[in-house]
């Protein structure tokens, strides 16, 4: 099975009757995902999970610099 067939299978598994344009885009986005994976596996430690809100901001992002009122 080539990449295009694989993409079609993955999209159809979600009930998507894909357009041709979607297949090319999906291939491109898999390459984006691969580059992210490579960086994460190289430099991000196992303790680092997703954090999306700023309720627990690392010091420096809104910590000491803010109090200095630069």
């Amino acid at each position: 099975m080539d990449e295009t067939d694989s993409i079609r299978c993955r999209l159809r598994a979600h009930g998507i009757r894909e357009t041709e344009a979607a297949v090319g885009l999906a291939a491109s986005w898999l390459r984006n995902a691969a580059r992210v994976r490579a960086v994460v596996e190289e430099v991000v430690g196992p303790a680092a999970g997703p954090v999306t809100a700023f309720t627990h901001v690392p010091a420096g992002l809104h910590g000491e610099e803010r109090r200095e009122r630069r």
């Binding site: 999209l11 979600h14 894909e18 885009l25 986005w29 898999l30």
Partner: peptide, 9 residues
């Protein structure tokens, strides 16, 4: 439409 479809990959 293509973007939304492609996201499922």
């Amino acid at each position: 439409r293509a973007q939304l479809e492609a996201g499922f990959v």
